[in-house]
Design a protein around this nucleic acid. Structure first.
Lengths: 312, 312
DNA sequence: ATCTTTGTATAGATAATATCTATAATCGCT
DNA sequence: AGCGATTATAGATATTATCTATACAAAGAT
């Protein structure tokens, strides 16, 4: 058994065809065939069922390939450890960002990345927290920018900044005060994001509402897909919503008039960069963390805000 | 980089000498030197500081070796997956057993192992739960027989049997009843094991005592190292102790007269076989589990006792 | 200082093996 | 039966892991 043979079976599992797999491995198809046969002989099992088309792994083959992927990942990390130690930051970094953060961070982040002329390749993908947790665990993503804490023992979270929540209200008479008392808000007035957004969960927690009771009491049932949509809904249909600081800052001056503080309370979300527990490229991660922290106002970096975090 | 090179650096790290390491790898010393140089060239780092004697890894070398050990473990698991699937149970299995279980299980277990003529080699080591948790995680032990639940997300526990607690009392007049009311027990009368034994923790929990208050109230301060010692102490110094079912069954007929049930309660401990989360040799584990379960009375296999488990 | 002793590195030869090109075998489809 | 697509086999070649023999380096002994 050798490392290449493991790479070959993983390639065949990905491509489901020997010829294509050989190409991705930069070897000839006969070499691939031979090497896989050799591994199968050594383990005395069939890894692939070649009678199927497209080719597919046998039951035991699937287990072997799964373990091969884990092994290869660990071996790759040996190189990553060395590169990290030498402050070498070349290579790809796949970063996931949740939709309620992305619009307000990505433009600045891209700008910083281009300015700095880093050797690394930053690949950004917008997804929800739930997807990101899976992708961080299976290695599809290297890091995830999301609202913590996750309480997932397989991931490690690095808090980056703390973002206050604001109310955004319509021009109605009842919201003319500069402060909003959350206890007095009619939940029929409250517009929310779709339930897969973690921001929605935090707002439900903030208002101490269960999604169950919320659904039953809604007169109009519409769940927005983005904060921008929420704002537009409030403007046209009255009522209110709750938005994070960066999106509040991003509003036009005219709309900023509709922002309200909460009465007698501060509520924030903790924005974290989460990585897999066995992540090793911390030099690269630090550069990315710094770029993100440079993309938000200094006031958000104050970790004394931690005590006001709204948990999920 | 190849798998053997990883094995070579781990061997040198273990032996701290090239010549000895070469021997354990069954290769010549020059080959070992050359292969390690090759890896160092490829990674462009020094893994070992050859100026030191005995030889020792560099700072980065230590990290690389650590990751190499992880990688090699995962690669070994590929073979284990295959062997497990083929119900092949050859190879070593290092089993840890806590001291309050070992004396009553090991004799039967060894007998069963010899009777069955299994191909596997069973290596048994007696240690405390805390040590075992570390050793299961770093791979020094393959499995651990202990009292659960551990609440450790890196380990998986397989409950095997449930063992009732009994009181063992001296011949004093006040213990003449067949039942003992735990609420009425004077803690000065209660003899306990040293604090590293999990059984002690369970008994403290059972009596709702904190070790702090317990220590302060003890008139004679002696912590026993084994259940046998406890029994002897009770016999000579009066008072009482709490022992698990298997040790109770092991007592002489004369001493069994001193066993008492608890009034209005059943208390049990859950004996588990714990393994690392990524353990794969389940065919072998099942054989061992079966041998252990065959070594205890059938009444202990009833998992309805689960509800009476005393947690730690 | 010089000579052992002990341990690691280098050189050149050899055996093992990963890879290649060319071609054969297999399978499904018309 | 024949074609197209895919995988397997054969024989040649390049690579590399390993060996033996020996050189080199450092520490302790005389």
């Amino acid at each position: 058994m050798n490392i290449q043979q493991l790479e070959y079976i993983v390639a065949v599992d990905n491509q489901r065809q020997f010829a294509k797999a050989a190409e991705t491995c930069n070897i000839s198809q006969p070499t691939l065939s031979l090497m896989i046969q050799k591994l199968e002989d050594e383990l005395k099992i069939q890894i692939f069922d070649r009678s199927k088309y497209p080719i597919e792994p046998t039951a035991i083959g699937r287990q072997v390939i799964k373990q091969a992927r884990i092994s290869l990942k660990n071996i790759r990390q040996i190189r990553e450890i060395v590169e990290n130690e030498q402050n070498c930051v070349k290579g790809k970094f796949k970063l996931g960002i949740i939709p309620t953060i992305a619009p307000y961070i990505v433009p600045n982040l891209l700008q910083k990345q281009l300015e700095q002329g880093n050797e690394m390749e930053l690949i950004i993908k917008e997804t929800t927290t739930a997807h990101m947790i899976v992708e961080l665990q299976n290695g599809t993503l290297d890091g995830g920018l999301l609202a913590g804490p996750l309480n997932n023992s397989l991931l490690v979270e690095h808090p980056l900044y703390y973002e206050k929540f604001y109310a955004y209200v319509s021009g109605e008479e009842k919201y003319k005060d500069r402060e909003i008392d959350l206890e007095q808000v009619n939940i029929n007035d409250l517009w929310l994001l779709e339930s897969e957004h973690c921001l929605r969960g935090q707002i439900e927690r903030l208002c101490e509402l269960k999604s169950q009771s919320l659904k039953n009491n809604f007169s109009v049932h519409y769940e927005a897909g983005s904060i921008d949509t929420l704002i537009n809904i409030v403007d046209t249909n009255d009522g209110m919503t709750i938005i994070p600081e960066l999106s509040a800052m991003n509003l036009s001056e005219e709309r900023q008039e509709n922002l309200r503080f909460f009465k007698n309370m501060t509520a924030v979300r903790e924005v974290c960069l989460a990585v897999n527990k066995d992540f090793v490229r911390y030099t690269m991660l630090n550069i990315i963390s710094d770029m993100i922290r440079q993309s938000v106002p200094k006031s958000m970096l104050n970790d004394e805000l931690k005590e006001y975090v709204v948990f999920l």
